[in-house]
C-alpha cells in the first residue's frame, strides 16, 4: 500500500479520521467505567459532597440483604428467561423454515413485537393482564375457565410469569432470526443423503439439524444471558418490581439507591460489580466464538 511509507507521518493523517469517534468513545464509554470505580470508593450524593471511604461500599454491599435479593431476582430472571426464550426462538425458526406458504408473513409476525418500544409492550401487557377488564381474564371468563378475575400482578409467581411472558413475546424474534440464518446455512445435501439412507424426519432433526445449530446456540445463549442480566425497563413498567420487591431486578435497585435515595457512591459500587460480571460473560462469549471459527 502507498501509505505505509511513514507510520508516524501517517498518524497525523489518520487523526482527523479517528479523533471525532475516539473523543466521544473516551468521554462517554471509557471514562464512565473509571469514574464509576472511583465513585464506588466514595460516599457520593447528587450534590457531590463526597469523601473517600475505600472499599467500605463493597463491604456494605456484601452485607446488604436488598442487594442480594434483587441480585437474586435478576438471577432468577436470567435462569428462567434464557432457556425459555432461546428454545422459543428455535421453535419459531423451525416453523419459518418449513415448506410452508406465507413464510414472510410468519417471519414478520414473530419479529414485529421486537420493533415496539419497551414502554408500549409493557403498557399492552399491563392491560392484557389487568384483573377486572383485561383481555386475558375476560377471555378466560368468556370460555368459562374462571369466574373471578385472576390477580396476575399481585402474586409473586404470576407476576414473574407475566414479566417472562412479556419479554418472550417482545424479544424472541431476535433469536429466531439468528437461528433461521443458521438453519438456512445447513447444506441441503446433508438431508438428501440422510433420506436416501432412510432416516426419518425426527432422526434428521436429531442427528443433522441439532448438531449443526450447536455453535449458533452458544452465541444466542450468551447474548440472551447478557440481555437478561440487564433487565430493568419491562419489570419497572409492568410490575414496578412488585408485588413488594418480589420481581425487583438489580438494575432497579441500583436506580433506586442512586437516584431516589441519593446514594450515587453505593449505586456505583453495585454497578461496577455488575459490570465486572457482564465483562466476564462477554469474554467467555468471545472465546467461544473464536474457538468456533477456528473449527470451521
Amino acid at each position: 500500500m502507498e501509505f505505509n511509507s511513514n507510520k508516524k507521518k501517517n498518524f497525523i493523517k489518520a487523526l482527523p479520521f479517528i479523533l471525532p469517534f475516539m473523543i466521544v468513545y473516551l468521554v462517554f464509554l471509557v471514562f464512565p467505567i473509571i469514574r464509576g470505580f472511583w465513585m464506588s470508593l466514595h460516599r457520593w450524593t447528587i450534590v457531590r459532597k463526597m469523601h473517600f471511604v475505600g472499599f467500605s461500599n463493597y463491604i456494605e454491599m456484601f452485607q446488604d440483604s436488598s442487594f442480594w435479593s434483587s441480585f437474586g431476582n435478576t438471577m432468577i430472571f436470567v435462569l428462567v428467561s434464557t432457556p425459555t426464550i432461546v428454545l422459543a426462538g428455535l421453535v419459531l425458526a423451525l416453523i419459518c423454515n418449513q415448506k410452508i406458504r406465507g413464510k414472510l408473513f410468519l417471519k414478520i409476525s414473530f419479529f414485529l413485537p421486537y420493533v415496539l418500544s419497551v414502554a408500549v409492550i409493557s403498557s399492552i401487557m399491563v392491560y392484557l393482564f389487568q384483573t377486572n377488564n383485561g383481555f386475558i381474564n375476560m377471555f378466560l371468563e368468556d370460555i368459562g375457565v374462571i369466574s373471578n378475575g385472576i390477580q396476575w400482578l399481585s402474586r409473586d409467581l404470576l407476576a414473574w410469569f407475566v414479566v417472562v411472558f412479556a419479554t418472550l413475546w417482545w424479544t424472541v424474534g431476535f433469536n429466531m432470526i439468528l437461528y433461521l440464518a443458521a438453519l438456512q446455512d445447513i447444506p441441503e445435501s446433508y438431508y438428501e443423503a440422510a433420506s436416501v439412507d432412510g432416516a426419518t424426519p425426527l432422526e434428521q432433526f436429531l442427528y443433522i439439524t441439532l448438531p449443526q445449530l450447536k455453535p449458533i446456540t452458544w452465541v444466542i445463549v450468551l447474548l440472551q444471558i447478557i440481555f437478561s442480566y440487564k433487565v430493568f425497563a419491562q419489570i419497572w413498567l409492568i410490575t414496578g418490581g412488585g408485588p413488594g420487591t418480589a420481581t425487583r431486578p438489580i438494575i432497579q435497585y441500583i436506580y433506586e439507591t442512586s437516584f431516589r435515595q441519593n446514594s450515587l457512591g453505593y449505586g456505583a459500587t453495585m454497578s461496577f460489580t455488575i459490570f465486572v460480571i457482564l465483562i466476564i460473560i462477554s469474554v467467555a462469549q468471545i472465546v467461544i466464538r473464536r474457538k468456533r471459527s477456528d473449527v470451521q
Binding site: 464509554l29 454497578s271 459490570f275 457482564l278 468471545i286
Partner: peptide, 12 residues
Amino acid sequence: MVPTEANVVALF
C-alpha cells in the same frame, strides 16, 4: 463488551 446499563450512574 461494555454494557451501558451498568454505567449509567457514572454517566449521569
